[in-house]
Design a protein around this nucleic acid. Structure first.
Lengths: 230, 230
DNA sequence: ACCTGAACACCGTTCAAGT
DNA sequence: ACCTGAACACCGTTCAAGT
C-alpha cells in the first residue's frame, strides 16, 4: 500500500487541491499495472493510491472495465503520430508499421494481455491505429479486399506474438533446459520431427530471441503478401 | 445454481458413490466454462456443481490455476491423433495442421482466451501438439532453424486470430454498421487509406467471414514460407 | 456535482477438525 | 486419505446520505 493518501473527508474537495479526473485516474491505474500487474489493479487499490474513497472513481468511469478500456486508449495514443514515409519501398513501410505496433504494446507488457483480450478496447483502438498498414499496402498496389485481408493477417500475427512475448519476462530465454527436457521425456516416436529439430537447434545453443523471431515472421508475411497479391 | 448436489456429510464418501477425482472435477469445470464462461467457473461454483465442499477440490488440484491448466490439456488432447498424410503436398499438410489447431481451440470458445493467456498451459501443451506442423515443413525441405521459425510464425498467427474469433459470437459479423460509422466519424484526413478501403468494401457488403479470413492468411503464410525458405 | 460510509453478495485459500 | 466448517482477507458495485 505504497503511495496511499488519506481519503478526503466527505463533501467537495478543498480549493486548490487537485480534484479527481478521468485522466488522473487512468494515469494512476497505468502506473499500478506497469509496476505490479493487472491483478494489483483493483478499484479499491486504485482509490487508495489516489487518496480517495473507492466509490469516488465511479463518478468518472462507470466500472472497472471502463478503466481498462481507457488504458488501452492511452497505450495506443502513442502510436498515432507515425509520419508517412515514401522514401522506402512499401515492404519496408509495412514492416515499420508492424514494429511500431509491437513497440506500443511492448511499452506496457503487463497491459498487453488485457488489451488484446478486451474486444471493445481492441476494436475501438485498432481502427485508428492501422492506417500505416493500409497506406503501405496501398502503395504496394493491392486491391481493397486484399489490403483488408493482409492487414488482418499481420495484425493477428502481432497479437499472437505479443501474447507469447509479454507472457515471458526476458527478451531472450533459453528454451533448452525446458523444451529439451520435455521433448526427451516424450514417449518415443510421439513427435519425431519435433524431437529432431529441437536436438538440432540444441547443438547451436537453443535460445529464442523475440526480435529475431519477429523479423523472421515479418519477412515471411511480406513475401507471402507479395507472392499472393502482386 | 443448476446441477448442484447436496454436499456430503463429513467423512469418507459412502461406498458406491462416485468419489471426487481430478478427472471428474475437470469435466465439470469444462462444462461450466462451455456453458457459462470463465467468470462463472469459480471454485465455489465448481464445488456446488459437484455436490461437494469447496475445499474438497483442493485435495485433487492445488488451486484454481491448476484447474484451468488441466482444462487446456483436455482441449488439446483431441488434437494428438491427427495421422500423417503423405498423399498431399506439404503445403496442404501444413494448412491441415493449422485448421485442426484452430478447430481444437474453437471447440471451446470460452476457454480459448484463458488457454492462450496462460503461459504454462500453452507451453506445456503446445509442445505435444505441433508435431504435424513440424512434419509438414520437414517434408517441404526446410532446415531445422527455418522449421522452428516458420512454426512459431504460424502458431502465433493462429493465436492472434483466435483472440479475435473467440471474442465475437457469430461466425460472420457485419463490420459495416460498426466500422463504417466509426471510420466516417474520424477527423477528415486522419486515416485516408483506411477510409477509402472500408468504403470500397462497403459497396460489396462489408461482412467479415472468419473462415475466409483464416484461409486467406494460410495462403499468405504458406506462400511466404515457400518464397523465403525454399 | 462530487465524494463518502456502510452494506451486499461474492471471491480464493488456510487451517484445524472430523471420520 | 479424504472431506468439511469456519474463518481470513480480500473483491466490484449499489444505494442513501452528506456538503
Amino acid at each position: 500500500m505504497i503511495n496511499a493518501r488519506k481519503p478526503h473527508r466527505s463533501g467537495r474537495p478543498r480549493a486548490g487541491e487537485g480534484r479527481l479526473s478521468r485522466e488522473a485516474i487512468l494515469r494512476a491505474a497505468l502506473r499500478i499495472v506497469d509496476d505490479e500487474g493487472v491483478d494489483a489493479m483493483t478499484m479499491r487499490r486504485l482509490a487508495s493510491t489516489l487518496g480517495v474513497n473507492p466509490m469516488s472513481i465511479y463518478h468518472h468511469l462507470p466500472n472497472k472495465a471502463a478503466v481498462f478500456g481507457g488504458l488501452a486508449e492511452l497505450v495506443f495514443a502513442d502510436l498515432e503520430s507515425a509520419p508517412p514515409r515514401e522514401d522506402v519501398p512499401w515492404q519496408e513501410e509495412l514492416k515499420a508499421a508492424a514494429r511500431a505496433y509491437r513497440d506500443a504494446l511492448r511499452a506496457h507488457p503487463n497491459l498487453a494481455l488485457q488489451i488484446l483480450s478486451d474486444t471493445s478496447a481492441v476494436s475501438e483502438v485498432v481502427v485508428t491505429t492501422v492506417e500505416p498498414f493500409y497506406r503501405a499496402l496501398d502503395r504496394g498496389g493491392l486491391a481493397s479486399r486484399q489490403i483488408f485481408e493482409a492487414v488482418n493477417t499481420i495484425v493477428d500475427f502481432i497479437h499472437g506474438f505479443m501474447l507469447g512475448e509479454t507472457a515471458v519476462r526476458a527478451d531472450t530465454f533459453e528454451l533448452a533446459p525446458d523444451l529439451l527436457d520435455r521433448v526427451d521425456n516424450l514417449p518415443a516416436g510421439k513427435a519425431p520431427t519435433l524431437s529432431r529439430v529441437v536436438r538440432d537447434l540444441g547443438r547451436e545453443g537453443l535460445h529464442y530471441d523475440f526480435d529475431t523471431g519477429f523479423e523472421s515472421a515479418l519477412t515471411v508475411l511480406v513475401h507471402g503478401i507479395q507472392k499472393t497479391w502482386t
